[in-house]
Design a protein around this nucleic acid. Structure first.
Length: 112
DNA sequence: TTGATGACATAGC
DNA sequence: CGCTATGCCATCA
């Protein structure tokens, strides 16, 4: 199908749907994509195809609202990108989920 | 085709 | 409260 914005992968598609200024967790993306524990699928997507699909990898954090990158440099860059979008991030990479966690229920159309 | 890997989540102890 | 074990799917060699 000619899905211009669809990558063929539900995971990728969901990640692309994350609005600016918000963050999403692995489990949340996984569920939206139709998986129960697709957290690792999200990991795959980010590692394997974040460039390929131009995914906002920096908008994805773990269930604790904290950045999980194994590379400190990567974390730093993620924090910088989030700050650039208006998301307040603690120096340790902690984000206020209550304030910035993406709620797809509030963005059913995610149309700006 | 099989086996291994991947920035996790959740339940159980 | 913190660790361990298990689960899920797609991609790569």
């Amino acid at each position: 199908m000619n899905n211009t914005e669809s990558t063929g992968n539900a995971i990728i598609d969901v990640i692309l749907s994350i609005p600016i200024g918000k963050v999403a967790t692995y489990g949340q993306i996984a569920k939206l994509a139709g998986y129960r524990n697709g957290a690792r699928l999200v990991v795959w997507a980010l590692n394997s195809s974040w460039q390929k699909y131009n995914l906002p990898w920096y908008r994805i954090v773990n269930a604790k609202g904290k950045i999980s990158l194994s590379s400190e440099e990567g974390r730093f860059e993620q924090i910088r990108c989030l700050l650039n979008e208006g998301v307040k991030v603690s120096e340790e990479g902690q984000i206020d989920l209550q304030e910035y966690l993406w709620k797809p229920e509030l963005d059913p159309n995610q149309m700006s």
